[in-house]
Every structure is written in structure tokens, then in C-alpha cells.
């Protein structure tokens, strides 16, 4: 093809420029899908410890994104000493393998939240999200008072899970898929990955834990706190030898 043909035809130019630029991206990204070390093996006794989110946590995560929490909070502890001392073990690729999209981020107006799960009580999260300055005087985090007052919408939870299933999250719809999940994650986890039971499971989890301190209804606060309380808690690092995760790089 003559140079002149490309330079005189804008559509051709755009297509060819796009192809040339993609080469760099493809060469860097595609092999990662095939290399064994990309996502760490975090099985304990043959059971995968990192699991997809429960229905309630899925809704909590949606609210996290809706409210733009990621604009101020990262979820990615980098392998540096200062971060290890403050936040705990560095984040693993395996820990966000069911996140679509991931919430790694790079903006830290507030602290990293990758391991905030179980650090505080539910009550603290409720107080803090409603009015951050009631517990942390110098905080610049906005108030989110409507979370406590807004009933959670969850009629469409099964649809949301099916959408996530389409991008590879192993929620189960058929008996065979359920059985596969039992093998992979154990029975307790497999139960709430069942799309057919999504609504019941969501209500059961909200009722059993009563995250927002109010039993009478399920609010957006219930969902968001359920999500925050599970962040970074799935891998029990005491079960792995020191340096084990360094062999994956």
C-alpha cells in the first residue's frame, strides 16, 4: 500500500493507527491471561478461600460505586514496608479476581480500604458513614445520611448476579453449577452463590447480622456495611508460609 493512500484516506489512517497502538497493549496484557503466576493460588485444604460476593455484599458494592467512594479510597495495598505496617499484608491479585470492575484506584484522600473488614464494629461504620466527624473529629469525608433512611432495592438482585456471571463470576443457576461450587468453595459458600436463592439469601444475611442496628427494614446502610466488613478478610495469611506469595512474581 502506498503511503499516499493512507495519508489521503482518514478512515484508513484511523484504523491503522488503532491497530499499531493496540499491539503494545496486547503484547503486555494478553500473556497475563495464560501465565500461571498471575493470580495467586490461595486454596486451603483444596477449598478456594477467595469467594464471590454474597447477594447483600454485591448490592453494597454497587452503592460503594454509586456514591463514588473510590474517588477518595483505594483498595490496593502495595508491597511497601510503610503500607504493610499501616494496612497489613499487601493485596493479592486473587483477592480482586471476582471484582468487576476492580476498585484498586490510586487516589488516597482517605485511607486504603483493602483490609478494612472486621477492623471496626458495624456500629462504628454506621456512625462514621452517617456523620464522619462524630467519631473522627478532623475527618474531611462527606456525610452519607441517606444510606440509613433509604430502603435497599433488591428485587433485581438475581439479574445483577446473572450479569456478573456473564463476565465470569461463578454464581450458579443450574444444579451442576451448584455442585461445582460446592467442590470449589465448600457448601456454606456455595449456598449463597445460588442465583435462585438470591433474594432469600440477601434477606437472611441482612437479618442475621443487622448491620445498621435497625431490624425492621433492610437499608442501603446494611448492604454497604456488609460489603465493607468483608473487604480483605477472605485470605487467612496465617495459613501460608512467609514469602509464599513472593513466588508468584
Amino acid at each position: 500500500m502506498k503511503h499516499e493512500t493512507i495519508e489521503t484516506n482518514a478512515a484508513w489512517l484511523i484504523v491503522l493507527v488503532f491497530i499499531v497502538i493496540s499491539i503494545g497493549g496486547l503484547a503486555e496484557i494478553v500473556p497475563l491471561y495464560f501465565i500461571d503466576d498471575t493470580v495467586e493460588d490461595v486454596k486451603v485444604d483444596g477449598i478456594e478461600t477467595v469467594r464471590p460476593y454474597s447477594p447483600l455484599e454485591v448490592r453494597g458494592r454497587d452503592i460503594y460505586m454509586r456514591e463514588g467512594c473510590y474517588l477518595c479510597h483505594s483498595q490496593m495495598i502495595r508491597p511497601f514496608r510503610d503500607e504493610a505496617l499501616r494496612y497489613g499484608h499487601y493485596s493479592l491479585a486473587a483477592e480482586s479476581k471476582f471484582d468487576h470492575p476492580f476498585q484498586w484506584g490510586s487516589k488516597r484522600t482517605g485511607p486504603d480500604l483493602a483490609r478494612v473488614g472486621k477492623k471496626y464494629s458495624n456500629q462504628w461504620h454506621v456512625e462514621h458513614l452517617t456523620a464522619p466527624r462524630s467519631v473522627v473529629k478532623e475527618s474531611i469525608m462527606p456525610n452519607y445520611p441517606w444510606l440509613l433512611k433509604t430502603d435497599l432495592e433488591y428485587k433485581d438482585i438475581a439479574e445483577r448476579m446473572k450479569a456478573l456471571k456473564m463476565v465470569g463470576v461463578p454464581y450458579s443457576e443450574t444444579k451442576a453449577e451448584y455442585e461445582a461450587n460446592v467442590k470449589r468453595f465448600g457448601k456454606d459458600v456455595a449456598k449463597f452463590l445460588d442465583v435462585n436463592q438470591a433474594e432469600n439469601n440477601l434477606m437472611a444475611q441482612a437479618l442475621a447480622n443487622n448491620y445498621d442496628g435497625n431490624k425492621s427494614n433492610i437499608t442501603e446502610m446494611d448492604a454497604l456495611v456488609a460489603y465493607l466488613q468483608v473487604l480483605g478478610t477472605m485470605v487467612d495469611f496465617s495459613k501460608f508460609e512467609d514469602g509464599y506469595f513472593s513466588t508468584f512474581r
Binding site: 502495595r78 508491597p79 511497601f80 514496608r81 504493610a84 514469602g243 506469595f245 513472593s246 513466588t247 512474581r249
Partner: peptide, 16 residues
């Protein structure tokens, strides 16, 4: 004694 190809995780192990 651990020897591994250089990566940031191992560097962290070493520093810790």
C-alpha cells in the same frame, strides 16, 4: 537463605 528473581514482593520480604 532465599534467592529469587528480583521483584517488589521479595524486596519487601527482604526489607521486613
Amino acid at each position: 537463605t532465599v534467592t529469587r528473581h528480583w521483584n517488589t514482593r521479595s524486596l519487601l520480604d527482604k526489607e521486613m
